[in-house]
Amino acid sequence: MSRMEQRKSLKSSASSLRILGILFVLPSMLFIAFSMLVPIVWNAAMSLTTWNGMTAVKWTGFANYAKVFEDAVTVRGFIYSLQIAVVSSALAIAAGLLLALAIYKTGPKEGAFYRFVFFSPAMMPFVIIGFLFVFILSPDVGLLNSVLGALGLQNLQHAWLSEPGTVVWTIAVIGGWRFSGLVMILCYTAMTTIPSSMFEAARLEGMGYARQVRMIILPLIMPTVRLVTLLMLILAFKTYDIVFIMTKGGPGDSSRTVPVRMLDVAFQYNEFGYASAIGVLLTILVSLVIVIVQRLARGESYEY
């Protein structure tokens, strides 16, 4: 076989390999296109129109976007969503990290037990958590107010889900509590990959656990913490189910987050175009926050 022929044969086998590869990838591409890209493009296109779900679609340009900024309820919704996202993510990460650091120091048997206990909220459906906390936070017969009353702390008793000053904070704290178990497991898993020789060397140097955490554990698990932070922010921004179960966005508009508002606008007011514009702006806000957090948490990655 001449060199020319050899080259041709190699070329043809490479191109058939490429075609085969494309054929293998095609079903996934179609699935992703249908389930992700089409809805995103469709939603963005719809945000430039008015449509009530049944009649003809009308092109309105950027009118829906202008309307968002004139609509006080939607603007407040963005503030509530941001508040819930930041507070619950910060709480979940702080609590999860502390739990992971505490469990890392326990023995294997009790460690497994604690991991199960603290991870269990992450396994519970939001609906169950929502109902559970509605009972716990009930103003008259709820567990929290009863405990505060028994401790003589009546001045701390609140109608947690009825007062505009407490409702969003309460939802954020419950969201943070719920995800703390997930953060704990991810951070704990990252800690288990750190070679024990490092800790032995640190102990020989006379380092206590607090310094080991600061000098060894935290720097080495930082990529995981960064990943978890992004995950938490994305999850927390989309919070719909727990808000809906616990308050339905109320009382009044006191906890009407963006996802709740979006569904109200679409399915109660029949304004699908406006709802799409809210959705696009939420996506932009989430992306912005993620970029900012990524910049803030940027650091070195260590290989070991």
Partner: peptide
């Protein structure tokens, strides 16, 4: 309205029990 501060979030079951 029962039970004061939490009146706007009282469920039907809570009212019935009270």
């Amino acid at each position: 309205v029962y039970p004061g501060k939490g009146a706007l979030t009282t469920t039907l079951d809570q009212v019935n029990i009270a």
